[in-house]
Design a protein around this nucleic acid. Sequence first.
RNA 1: UGGCCGAUAGUUCAGUUGGUAGAACGCCUGGUUUUGGUCCAGGAGGUCGAAGGUUCGAUCCCUUCUCGGCCAGCCA
Length: 573
Amino acid sequence: MSDDAVATDFVREKIRADNESGKYQSRVQTRFPPEPNGYLHIGHAKSICLNFGIAADFDGICKLRFDDTNPETEDQNFVDGIIEDLTWLGFDPDEVVYASDYFDQLYDWAVSLIERGLAYVDDQDAETISDQRGGFTTPGTNSPFRDRSVEENLTLFAGMRDGQFADGEKVLRAKIDMNHENMQMRDPVLYRIRREHHVRTGTDWIIFPTYDWAHGQSDAIEGVTHSICTLEFDSHRPLYDWCLEQLDLPFEAPEQTEFARLNLTHTVTSKRKLKQLVDDGVVDGWDDPRMPTIRGLRRRGYPASAVRSFMDHIGVAKTNSTHDIELLESFVRTELNATALRRMAVLRPLKVVITNWPEGQTDMREAINNPEDDSAGTRQVPFSGELWIEQDDFKLDPPPKYFRLTLGREVRLRAGYFITANDVVTNADGEVIEVHCTYDPETAGGQAPDGRKVKATIHWVSSETAVDASVNLYERLFTDSHPGSGDTDTFSSLNPNAREVVAAKLEPALGEVAPGEVVQFERLGYFAADLDDPSVFHRTVGLKDEWANIQKRQQNQGKQKGQQQKGQQKKKG
RNA sequence: UGGCCGAUAGUUCAGUUGGUAGAACGCCUGGUUUUGGUCCAGGAGGUCGAAGGUUCGAUCCCUUCUCGGCCAGCCA
């Protein structure tokens, strides 16, 4: 266990206490148990970091177990994808196992349950069983098949396995208590018949154990000590314990501990809803950079290490919580600030002509690759008399505190020269389509020999050597910070502008970026070259934008002033 | 409606064996800076869900209440 990073959450606290009391011989084993019916999302990452993190902290082991007990929705692609995502996140399971590996054992244990009069075969359909379960304040009623003889149950259960009954015709139920205050204990279903092809067992089995019968038993088979799951399984814990108690294990049974799942603002972390986004074509797929899936984040350029530090930071508790997605982004920025190479790219190009630049001449300017990391070195960037700059970096009528380019003002071109804007060319609509500037040859390298200062440094790309690229700019997937909260429909706040594709001009070095590499477009943000087509970039996250805050404040002040004036007018009237 | 779980800065979490509270992110101010980035320094922001009780003293212990989440699948 690492001494310095003493993570103190209630789960680790409990494990420490268990270890001190000698429970499980102070052994620690966890597991990450996804169902292979979808890809992993950021919520799973929390569970992964917790389970694998605990194993690492306590010198224990953590296996990846596929909870493949329901053949209906499960798929090999998801199995492969989950392993891939887990690996990318930086975790290496001690073993990859499957609940279906234990079908024989689970069956034998069910038989033993029947033999001891603790389970029975019920002939009723799902609806009837549901009706008989009763309500929160009303007791359930016993099934008419509850008191079948052991022999009959044994025969029927074998018949279920051997295909003598149709799907849904019979189930195996635990015989516990139809009056139990916990609904989970009212004779839960342990086995159902389902003639579906199973990813691993094919057609060998047509009866499948339910989660409740499979999960704790699988934990026990593997020697799991601490079975960590999310809050919604809280009410299953008595059943988890009951199932284990019937086994007469020669060792201490695993114990379930529940923690609060991760929610993030402006997105959803529910497999069902993510699937709907994919199925409805709202996004391009599970790996769309707008998706909070692991593959989505990867394509978007989130470093796995940033995801991990985020998880470390938010901790583990039982409080239902929704984390601000900005917090995640701040970890992404911190990581990328230290590692990403700086490059220049112009997203919304505006032409600049340097009128006093020697006709046809191209200069090579030296630019720093990463001011945070000297070892990243420098590169040469071509400079000429015709450049692209950002439309936002020139204003004919500059608002207060705007200190970028405007007529008559001098600014610095990053790694280039000081330029002064003298004139503009406008189109028929009066929009500026070209800015004419002069440069000061004395300012090569970015400093004026006479010591005069400029307030702004702007980025640029020389037009003749510019590389064209399509850049995807992403906004929040949902405009509502808590989609679906209250009575609102989750998808009603879907942001139709969550992706904007822009035709950008890049400096030549950006034509040689490796797939998946993340660079900083100076002054704009971090951008990831697409995994399949590196001429396409995805905005991972923008830089912090002080200018945007200034503008916001100015707007608010304007509003307040307007309101004050309105108020005064009212008083007068 | 019954049971279980939860409630501490804007947000998410720490914490106090009972002596009125900290961090991170966000926000604000200043400094540095060839990124309005980074970095550095500082600041604002909390009646610790509410009301009672025990106590010299309660955010912490007790009771009641309020609000939120979960549970009545042959999903997990």
